[in-house]
């Protein structure tokens, strides 16, 4: 059994991020055995280099990303005065769970999500809705169907600029519970929709163990 002695930080070494994947001595020694020739590096030095290089690689992978390159374009946004019924159709057709609401002047007025529909029906989730299907009052459903998008949308919408880089995108996602958000240009006009899953996929966060 390898002796998994707890070791302190290397004197003078910058403290690495706590989430870095930890290698134990046996991992490093095994790798060294596979490289012919004498390597004059201690396992602790190797670990320190690995941690810092790992953090650097993560920065490099994140730094190159911009919202404009990740966003989905060609989406049809909602109008503030359309009915929820039309809005629901629009969402279903595009296979999305949320859509930006764009005002007549082209600015992003808000965001309408599936949750806004559920809230209108007085339930907390789709499962909640299923459980209460029998009890749903037809009057509530009709009221929701005819309501205007502007009455239910979340406004103002949290948006990111086209030029936003990964840290800004991550910060923006942390500010709300949504899974997507509008990407806007300098004039506040809608340019596309940034999906959280697209950001996670592009950031290779799984590859670098973040």
């Amino acid at each position: 059994m390898p002796d998994q002695r707890k070791t302190g930080p290397l004197p003078g070494a910058q403290q690495p991020p706590a989430d870095a994947f930890e290698l134990d001595d046996e991992d490093v020694l095994d790798a060294m055995r596979q490289i012919p020739g004498y390597l004059d590096i201690s396992t602790e030095d190797f670990r320190a280099i690995y941690r810092l290089a790992h953090a650097h690689a993560r920065q490099r992978l994140l730094r190159g990303l911009r919202a404009a390159e990740l966003m989905r374009t060609g989406i049809r946004p909602l109008a503030p005065d359309s009915s929820l019924h039309d809005a629901a159709e629009c969402l279903v057709q595009q296979g999305l769970k949320a859509l930006p609401v764009v005002a007549a002047d082209g600015s992003v007025a808000g965001m309408l999500t599936e949750n806004d529909f559920l809230g209108c029906l007085g339930v907390r989730s789709v499962l909640d809705l299923l459980l209460r299907l029998d009890a749903a009052a037809p009057a509530d459903v009709a009221r929701c169907r005819d309501a205007r998008v502007s009455a239910l949308m979340s406004a103002p919408a949290i948006c990111v600029a086209e030029q936003a880089r990964a840290p800004e995108m991550l910060r923006a996602f942390r500010r709300h519970a949504g899974r997507s958000m509008p990407v806007i240009d300098a004039d506040g006009r809608l340019r596309g929709l940034l999906l959280r899953k697209d950001l996670l996929h592009a950031a290779h966060l799984d590859d670098v163990g973040a």
Partner: peptide, 19 residues
Amino acid sequence: FSKWRGTTRGSPPRVSSAE
């Protein structure tokens, strides 16, 4: 004095006989 104990267990492995 905790630094006196050393931070690393074991030195690099022995090289092969060919080496």
